[in-house]
Simulated assay, not measured.
Amino acid sequence: MRKPYDLAPLGDLACFESAARNLSFKQAAQELNVTPAAVSHRIKALESELGQGLFTRQYRGVELTEAGALLFVALQRGFETISDAVVRIRARQDRAGVSLAATTAMSALWLTPRLAAFWKAHPGVAISQIIQDDGTGHGVDLSIHYGDPAREADETRVLFHDRILALGSPEFAAAQGIRDVQDLARAPLIHTQSGTNPYTEWPDWFAAMGIEAPQGPGFYLNSYLISLNAAEDHIGAVLGWEGLLGGSLTSGRLVQLVPDAMASPSPFYLRIHNRASANARLFADWLAAPEA
């Protein structure tokens, strides 16, 4: 029976491609985890199969002959095509599952408590949470962000858009004697500066209250979860989204320090990436529904 492709042994071709790309039998041997003698043996077998030399051997290395260069270009194109196909196939290996990226704080405070309810309704769908505090949302079906959804080229769903409160521990509120916004402006404040997520900060909040800037001491942290922990440890006041921190408010670990609140200038939203599967869209619709 005639072969569909007129090819030399694939192992010899793969060995040649590595040696040609590195212009070194020794480096090819290291890459393929074999000995240089094994590489040389395969190259000689391939040259014998083709009836002509593929390398010019020199004292300090090797160079491709004209035939070798022709074969190398053809193999590179073929291997690149195969590699692209393998990557796409691997990316689809678990399309029943859903991958979702979120910051540490969003995952811990808002997302994880909702997963039990989703799994109860859809037990066959696995959710993989990927922590990405840089806000990139790379390589996933879905990702959660804070900001303007209109900036995204992908489809989005608004998750919540609520009030930003000034929060602190009950002990902190009592010790500082905070009665109004003016008192709060003189109290110690915790600032979260992640460098990647454009969270609303204290100057914006006080500006919305008609106050130019806080005058009290500041504590600067680069993690919102650590900022919340610091507030619960009575170190200072922290800004909190009402929809994000319902558990902390209900438990009494944090309390609203003043009745004033700022409408959040941006929502938390869900980005649906191009690679999103049908199950990912199912989860996106469920997560953005008012009762989720």
Rank of each mutant, 00 (worst) to 15 (best):
D141I: 06
Q52W: 08
R95F: 09
A231L: 08
G247V: 11
E155R: 13
W286F: 08
A96C: 10
S107A: 15
T35D: 12
G135I: 06
Q132S: 15
S128G: 13
E155C: 08
I130P: 03
H41V: 05
R77S: 11
Q182N: 14
Q215M: 12
S83A: 09
Q93Y: 02
S99M: 05
N22D: 15
N222L: 11
N279F: 01
G78H: 00
G68E: 01
D133I: 03
E17A: 02
A231H: 07
Y199C: 10
A289L: 11
L23D: 04
P123M: 07
S83M: 02
Q176I: 05
G137L: 11
I164Y: 04
E31G: 02
A278T: 12
L254S: 08
A174H: 12
L228P: 04
A166N: 14
Q132E: 15
G68H: 06
Q27W: 01
G247C: 10
L109E: 13
Y59L: 14
E291I: 05
L225T: 14
A121M: 05
P170Y: 04
G252Y: 09
R275H: 12
T250H: 13
A91T: 12
K26D: 09
R2F: 14
F172S: 08
E171K: 14
A14Q: 13
W241Y: 15
A231E: 02
L254P: 09
L109S: 13
